[in-house]
Design a protein around this nucleic acid. Structure first.
Lengths: 300, 300
DNA sequence: TCAATAGTGTCTATGAGACAGTATGCA
DNA sequence: TGCATACTGTCTCATAGACACTATTGA
C-alpha cells in the first residue's frame, strides 16, 4: 500500500513541530441538566406529599440572554474532560460530588451562542433531594430549582412516497419562585429510503437562554426512556424509602400513574427490604427499602 | 435577585467587544464508525452466503500512529456542526450521502491525541452494502473494510459495602485484506451509594490508532442494543431482501443465532411483503420484503 | 369509626422461546 | 430423490395490566 505523501520527519520531530493553530478552534463547554425530585408541601396530614420533578437553572448575569435562565455550564479547561467540567459545575452549584451523571449529546450549531462559536457537550445528573442544599458560591443567589413538567400538544404522521415523517409538538413548563417559563418544541423524525433525520426546533420560548430548551427536552426524554429499562430512578431516592415514594418518582417523571401491584413486581429486584417502617403517617405504616446495587448495576 | 457584577454595556457592545480567545480552545473533530454487512463468498451453490459485519478503517499516512488503522474522521469546520463534519467524512470516503447516522459520544481525555488536545465527537453510520463502492478520493487507496467481530472473554462481579462492580473483558477482532487487528477492552461499571462510574480501558491493541478501539466498542454496543428495540438494522439492507437475510444481519451483529419463527413475528410490523420471490437458489424460493417505514419511524 | 395508604392474590392478554412439522425448487 | 432453505402452528413460560381484596394506622 503506497503512501500518498512522503513522510520526512520521525514521529518525535513531527510532534514537536505540529502547530495546532493551523485549524480553527471552537470553544468547548459542558452543560448540565441537574434533576431532582422534591416534595411539595402538603396540607392534609393524611395525604402523602406530592412529588415534583425539578431542574436547576442559573439566572444569567451577563449578555447574551441577560436576565434569562440557563442550564449550569462552563468552558472545559485544558486538563479536564468534558465530564470533569460537568462535574465541576455540579459541585460549584450544588456542593455535591459523586452523583449519577451521564453524557447526553453534543450540540454544535455554529450560531447557538451569539458571542462566538461554542460547542457544548450536554450532561444529565440525578441528585437525591435529601442532602440537597444549593452551594453558597458565587452564583448561589442566581441558582434556583424549577419545577419541570411537559405535555404532548400534538402528534401527526405523514406518509409520503418511500418514507414517513412524524411530528410531535410538546410544551415544557418550568415554574420557579416568581418565574414561569414556557417552551414549545417540535420534534420531527423523518424516514426515507436513504436517510433519517431527527430534529428538534424551538417554536416558542419565554425565558430559557441559548438552545437550552432543546437540551432540557432531550434530557427529559432520556430520563424517561431510561426509567423503563434501568434502575436510574434510584439515584433520585434517599438511602431509605418506601415503594410508594419510588412509585411517585416514576409517576412524576413519566407523567402518568402506574398500578401499584405491577410496579412492585417490576422494581422488586432493584430494592431490598429493611426492618424499618414509617410511622406517624395517619395511615398504615410502610416498609422502608434500600437500593440493591447488585441488580441495578446489571441494567446500566 | 441582585446582580453580582454590574453590567456596563448594552448587548450589542458586549458582543462586539467579546474576545473568544480569553479561553483555551481545543480542536474539535468528528469520527465515524461506518458499519456495513457484506456477503462472504460461498462455495456451495445451495448454501446461503454468510454475512459479515464490516467497519471502514483508514490507514494513517502521517504521524502519529503512522501506518496504523484509524476510523475516518476530521476536524470540524467553522460553519458546520459535528454532524455535518461526520457526514462530510462519510461522503469523502464512501461517496455516500443520506444514510442513517447518529451521534454516539464525545471523547475528551486531554491526552487522547499526542499532537495536541483534540476533542472528538464520535458518530455511527449504517450503510447498505448493495450500493457500496469506496470513493476514488485522496484517501481511497488507504481505506478498507475490516470484518469485525467481538467476543466476551470474561465477566466478573464484585460486591462490596454499599456497592457493586462489574468488570467485562471483550476481545475485538478486525480482519482486513492482509491485516489482523486485535483489541482487548475492559469495561468496568461501578455502583456505590453516591456514584456510578462506567469506564472502558484498552488492555491490548495491535494496530488501531488513538482511542479508536474504545469508540468502536461503544459503537458496536450501541448497534447491538438498538437492534433489540428499533428497526435500525433495516438501514443495512438493500431495498428488497428476504427475511432470512434480515435474520442473518441480526445474527452476525448480535453474535448468536435466532429462532426463525420468533424472529419473523418480531420484525413483521417493520416489513411489507412484495410479490417478488428469489429464484435459482437450489432450494425453495423466498419472498422478498421491503421496509415498512411507517412502523420503523415509530421506534427511533 | 373511617380516611388514606400498604400490600397481596389472581385472572388475562401478550410476546418470546422452543420445536415439530409442512412446503418447495433445483442439481 | 434429497438437500437446503422457507414458512407456519402451537405449546410453554415469563411478564405487564387490571382489579379486587385484605391490612393497618391515628385523629
Amino acid at each position: 500500500m503506497p503512501e500518498k505523501k512522503k513522510v520526512f520527519l520521525n514521529e518525535e520531530t513531527f510532534l514537536q513541530q505540529y502547530n495546532a493553530d493551523d485549524y480553527v478552534h471552537p470553544s468547548v463547554a459542558a452543560d448540565m441538566v441537574i434533576f431532582t425530585v422534591m416534595d411539595a408541601p402538603e396540607a392534609n396530614y393524611r395525604k402523602l406529599p406530592e412529588k415534583q420533578l425539578c431542574v436547576l437553572l442559573i439566572r444569567r448575569g451577563m449578555y447574551p440572554f441577560l436576565g434569562q435562565w440557563a442550564l449550569p455550564g462552563g468552558f472545559v479547561r485544558p486538563n479536564e474532560t468534558v465530564g470533569n467540567a460537568a462535574r465541576r459545575e455540579l459541585r460549584e452549584e450544588t456542593g455535591l460530588d459523586n452523583v449519577y451523571m451521564e453524557q447526553l449529546c453534543t450540540f454544535s450549531e455554529p450560531d447557538r451562542d451569539p458571542r462566538t462559536r461554542v460547542i457544548s457537550c450536554a450532561h444529565m445528573a440525578l441528585v437525591n433531594s435529601a442532602n440537597l442544599q444549593l452551594a453558597a458560591g458565587d452564583d448561589a443567589d442566581r441558582a434556583a430549582w424549577f419545577r419541570c413538567s411537559s405535555q404532548l400538544l400534538s402528534e401527526s404522521r405523514e406518509t409520503h412516497t418511500m418514507g414517513c415523517t412524524i411530528t410531535k409538538r410538546s410544551l415544557f413548563h418550568l415554574s420557579g419562585e416568581n418565574v414561569q417559563i414556557n417552551c414549545t418544541l417540535e420534534h420531527k423524525i423523518s424516514h426515507t429510503t436513504h436517510s433519517v433525520t431527527d430534529e428538534y426546533t424551538i417554536i416558542e420560548n419565554t425565558g430559557l437562554a441559548f438552545d437550552h430548551a432543546r437540551i432540557l427536552a432531550l434530557a427529559l426524554e432520556r430520563l424517561r426512556s431510561k426509567l423503563e429499562y434501568t434502575g436510574i430512578a434510584l439515584h433520585l431516592m434517599p438511602a431509605r424509602f418506601t415503594l410508594t415514594q419510588l412509585q411517585q418518582v416514576y409517576e412524576v417523571i413519566l407523567g402518568r400513574s402506574l398500578l401499584a401491584a405491577a410496579f412492585r413486581r417490576k422494581i422488586a429486584p432493584l430494592v431490598r427490604g429493611t426492618d424499618e417502617y414509617t410511622s406517624d403517617a395517619g395511615h398504615r405504616p410502610s416498609q422502608l427499602f434500600e437500593r440493591n446495587w447488585d441488580n441495578i448495576a446489571e441494567l446500566i
